[in-house]
């Protein structure tokens, strides 16, 4: 019985993925993608990866979904592929082009098919590896936390996690970079809607507390910096929607401080213990639990700030007149 659920979930995931790419309307695509993310989150739960499920739901489906939806307003509402088909019928030239594309597409599908067969064989024949469960289990008591995933993330492989916090900051810098030469501009607030503002203001403390809970629970169960960070980031995004652009209220230096706090504190802590003769990110076992909680909290703040800023920057892209086009 349970295996049937898994098979159905797998088929659903594949179907949603296919449909989100094949859908003729862009908005359909995005909604199907959103659904795909949720199906994937279900799959994580089925596989016992609750941390991943929360992350997937919060960041990959939630945050990214919001970004895509926001982007939809930007792109032409007309149906892209459909319209192209329409013009194909009308325009003999582009029909010719689509005919000339038929053969390459066939070749592509053939290649994909063969690739898929080999990939399936590779995955099917995979030898037993054993994994690192046993190793993690033995070392877990020394890590300072009880939840193995948190132990791996913030202690065993803290270096990866640190770099990853860096990647989020980088994502923000990259979004800045896209804005061309006008960076650090103040975002423009969304339209004022009193009702929405009230609703959002109501949800803010709830989300905050939920985030704090996730953060704290990360020590012993599913949850942690990323999940909390995303939830807190969601607050910022919601407030932005509600016409309260937190991002532009915060003074520049404070904004940067919030953004870099997690990354820098993480690193400086590492350097501190390195100066004492240890390796980078090596915590004394006695204080490990406390230090990890502090690092997680700061990281969550930074992630929240970065996500809010990314959203705010993307969101106001539409509104801003591309006046620097003239400078080209």
């Amino acid at each position: 019985m349970s295996i049937l659920i898994d098979i159905l979930l797998a088929i659903l995931g594949v179907y949603l993925a296919m449909q989100s790419l094949l859908a003729s309307r862009l908005s359909q695509s995005v909604f199907l993608f959103f659904a795909f993310g949720l199906a994937l989150a279900l799959a994580w739960v089925r596989l016992g990866a609750v941390d991943v499920a929360i992350t997937e739901a919060a960041i990959a489906a939630g945050f990214l979904g919001v970004l895509f939806l926001d982007a939809l307003r930007d792109f032409s509402p007309r149906d892209t592929e459909e319209q192209q088909n329409l013009t194909t019928v009308q325009n003999s030239l582009s029909r010719k082009e689509s005919k000339s594309l038929l053969l390459p597409r066939l070749a592509l599908v053939l290649g994909l098919g063969l690739f898929l067969l080999i990939a399936l064989e590779a995955v099917w024949k995979i030898p037993e590896g054993g994994g690192l469960t046993a190793a993690a289990e033995t070392l877990l008591p020394e890590s300072g936390v009880e939840h193995p995933v948190t132990a791996v993330l913030l202690n065993f492989r803290a270096y990866d996690t640190w770099l990853e916090i860096g990647v989020i900051l980088l994502g923000l810098l990259a979004v800045f970079a896209v804005g061309g030469i006008q960076i650090y501009r103040k975002p423009i607030a969304a339209a004022d809607d009193p009702l929405m503002r009230q609703v959002i203001l109501f949800f803010t403390p709830v989300l905050f507390l939920f985030g704090a809970f996730l953060l704290y629970i990360g020590k012993s169960g599913p949850g942690g910096a990323f999940q909390a960070g995303v939830l807190w980031g969601a607050i910022g995004i919601l407030l932005h929607f509600g016409g309260i652009p937190v991002y532009s209220w915060v003074p520049r230096w404070l904004g940067h401080l919030l953004l870099t706090l997690g990354l820098v504190f993480f690193l400086l802590l590492g350097f501190l213990f390195m100066a004492a003769g240890d390796n980078l990110f090596e915590y004394p076992p006695a204080y490990a639990g406390l230090l990890i909680l502090i690092v997680e909290t700061l990281a969550a703040i930074s992630i929240a700030a970065a996500l809010t800023a990314i959203f705010a920057n993307l969101n106001q892209m539409k509104k801003e007149q591309p006046n620097d086009t003239a400078q080209k």
Binding site: L47, G48, A49, D51, V52, T55, E56, I59, A60, F63, L64, L67, F68, A71, D74, F75, G131, L132, T133, A136, E137, P148, V149, A151, V152, L153, F156, R157, D160, T161, E164, V167, I168, L170, G171, A174, V175, V178, G179, G180, F226, I310, N313, L314, M317, K318
Partner: peptide, 30 residues
């Protein structure tokens, strides 16, 4: 418990992928 290392790797991976996707989206919109 399930092997925690892949879980941690996937969480890292998702965040990295989302950061690049957000960047790509910004580029596309611009």
């Amino acid at each position: 418990f399930a092997d925690p290392v892949p879980h941690a790797l996937v969480i890292t991976g998702i965040v990295v992928a989302v950061a690049s996707a957000a960047f790509a989206l910004a580029l596309a919109r611009r």
